[in-house]
Simulated scan of single mutants.
Amino acid sequence: MSQKTTALFNLHQKLGGKIVDFNGWSLPIQYEGITVEHKAVREAVGLFDVSHMGEVEVKGKDAEAYIQKLITNDVATLANNQVLYSLMCYHNGGIVDDLLVYRFTADYFLLVINASNIDKDLKWMRDNQMNYQVEVNNVSDKISEIAIQGPKAELVLQKLTDYDLATINFFYFRDNLNIAGANCLVSRTGYTGEDGFEIYLKHQDAEKVYEELMKAGEKEGIKPAGLGARDTLRFEATLPLYGNEINEDITPLEAGLGFFVKLDKHSFNGKDVLVKQKEEGIKRRLVGFEMLDKGIPRHGYQVMSDKGDEVGFVTTGYQSPTLRKTIGLAIVSSKYSDIETPINIQVRNKLVKAKVISKKFYQKKYKK
């Protein structure tokens, strides 16, 4: 099966992007280099092609009730033009996916899901349609998505629109905005821990808008950024990645995402299991850790106690470009989750010393 490409593929090649296979998509992992791109987003502004993400429309008179059943967060709290982060769980409490819910009206929502999970998510959504009067439409193939992220994101994007972007609050959106002559949906959201926007638009407009953003951000030091920096940025900001910190075998409570699980909500998939897990106590947790000896902790490496017992596994590990130290996230047995607990990471054939630290590695700089 040939790899899928986004509407910006030719542009990535022109900009010198190093193309890799990412869940069946040909996407740039980096251009100048992960650290350069990471730094640009933290200090100035970076531009990402995230057109591989999935988009699903939910329409109909039961749209809100149907989504309420599907997700752990409370969709009833949303105003029109507001966005909600949530998890979608199986009946056993494991995670189908994490997603963004965009509310247009009580009977029209857009769900933004992970590229690797589109087919699985759609099947789950359709299996749960039951008697709800809703239409569930996969519109992923019709939409390109560009993310502009960093402290100078608003300044750059403002040059291409007459709309006052300062009026869009964090986790709100506006539809039908004119950006460089293209009709776009713009939300103040992102996956980097910085201020920024995600722009949804038609494929035929993507290249022009991307190029105009690059031009508009020249003075501000804008850089195209690839999947590599996207991962290091989200990791430093402790934003979970499906397949790493969350999956079908990890519950939102174990992943430290209890804030997005409203257990007092009437009923949703997985609720009973999560209520029970909270009552009985969570047996394993997501923790941050810092390496004390040399070695890079990779996804899937074993975490061992100082007595040599296996107590968990690494979900993500990097040399943090911002903090300049080697840190990671791991799911470990709760009795090894206290700050300063000594642990060891099995790096290839040897045990390397580490200690548990706060997983708030980086102070997020969202515009509230």
Results as ranks from 00 to 15, higher is better:
D141N: 07
S140D: 01
N92L: 00
G94V: 03
L110T: 13
D127C: 00
R103K: 15
G181M: 09
T167W: 02
N81E: 13
M88F: 03
E194Q: 15
A76K: 14
A79W: 02
F109N: 06
K120E: 08
D141Q: 04
M88D: 01
L157C: 08
N117F: 01
A166K: 15
T189A: 11
E194A: 14
G181E: 14
A182W: 07
I118F: 01
L155T: 15
K123Q: 07
N114K: 11
V186Y: 04
L110W: 06
I146V: 14
N73Q: 11
I146H: 07
F173R: 11
Q149K: 08
G193W: 14
I168Y: 03
V139I: 12
N176H: 12
N176E: 13
T77E: 10
F171T: 04
L78I: 01
N138S: 02
A106E: 11
L157T: 10
L110S: 12
R103N: 06
L111R: 02
S187A: 15
I146N: 09
A106V: 06
E154S: 13
Y108K: 13
E145A: 13
R126W: 02
I113N: 08
L122A: 05
A147R: 04
Y172C: 12
S140K: 02
V139L: 02
G190D: 13
L84D: 06
F171N: 06
R174T: 05
G181L: 07
A147T: 07
V75C: 12
E154R: 15
R126I: 06
L84E: 03
E194D: 15
T161N: 07
K123I: 05
D74R: 11
I113W: 06
K123F: 02
D97T: 10
E135P: 05
Y108H: 15
W124N: 06
A76F: 13
D141A: 13
N92A: 00
V186K: 04
F104P: 03
Y191Q: 14
N176T: 05
D97Y: 09
G94P: 03
N131E: 12
P151R: 14
N131V: 06
V83T: 10
N138K: 00
A106H: 06
V96N: 03
C89H: 06
